[in-house]
Nucleic acid binder design. Structure first.
Length: 250
DNA sequence: GGCCAGGAGGCCT
DNA sequence: AGGCCTCATGGC
């Protein structure tokens, strides 16, 4: 079981399109098309997809534990059941969240697609993979700006120049990994946390944005995210989505 | 309907 | 503390 709409369209990934109940994207150079009904069968026969959707992880146990800690969080989990944390490509995720700053989901998705169409490989009719660092090396700041990337253009180019450091992140603990990611221009604490949670599966990392600040404001007893350790990142995802869709109401 | 100001899942100098 | 690309949105 999975909540595809919330998992794929609510700010974790910018690669997916929705048409009715059908979701499609290019993952690992293949076009993937899914509905919630075909999901179980699709991942069962496909190791790449199974990993992408994090099927082996113990969500039931983690969510049960989180629900036992706090009633509000329990309600959020019950209501938005089966949000999953994806195992996305670190490079694509890094660029995506550099694009995300001072931006909304619709525009981030649009920029993601623009980069794919301009520099990515066409893997099927009308479907383009996210460009590799090697492919993006051809990009100029002027070209990026003309696509609408704006002042983030120089950040993208700095990430291209330093993309090899993404390999080293796997070996580092959360704090050191965050510091290393922040050596890329345009990557601060928030963007680094998004990369760690959504690409490196660091389940205890919490991206703090304006929505999560609002959660903290409305729930002063959340004195520290350590409350939800070692699953604070998963807790964040439920609290974040609930806050965005229903405000402070429980 | 048209105009304009402030915001949008931050970060740099 | 201000500025930054650009676009959708809401207030007037």
């Amino acid at each position: 079981m999975i909540n595809l709409e919330t998992t794929l369209l609510c700010g974790q990934s910018f690669a997916w399109r929705q048409e009715g109940d059908t979701y499609s994207a290019v993952v690992a150079n293949r076009v993937i098309t899914l509905t919630e009904k075909t999901f179980v069968h699709a991942v069962a026969s496909d190791q790449t997809l199974s990993h992408y959707f994090d099927c082996a992880w113990h969500y039931d146990e983690a969510e049960e534990y989180l629900a036992s800690i706090d009633p509000h969080l329990a309600a959020c989990i019950a209501q938005h059941r089966s949000i999953r944390i994806l195992n996305q490509d670190p490079w694509e995720t890094t660029i995506s969240f550099i694009l995300s700053q001072n931006n909304n989901i619709a525009r981030i998705t649009q920029l993601h697609r623009a980069l794919c169409q301009r520099w990515g490989s066409e893997v099927a009719e009308g479907f383009y993979a996210f460009p590799t660092a090697e492919q993006l090396r051809c990009a100029t700041e002027g070209e990026l700006r003309s696509l609408g990337v704006g002042y983030r253009s120089s950040y993208v180019l700095d990430a291209v120049a330093n993309h090899e450091l993404l390999q080293r992140v796997w070996e580092l603990d959360d704090l050191k990994a965050s510091h290393l990611l922040q050596t890329i221009k345009g990557v601060g604490a928030k963007v680094a946390a998004c990369i760690l949670l959504f690409a490196y599966h660091r389940m205890n990392v919490v991206p703090v944005d304006t929505w999560i600040e609002r959660v903290q404001l409305n729930h002063p007893h959340y004195t520290s995210w350590d409350l939800f350790s070692p699953y604070a990142g998963l807790a964040q995802q439920y609290l974040f989505h609930h806050e965005r869709t229903q405000g402070g109401a429980v």
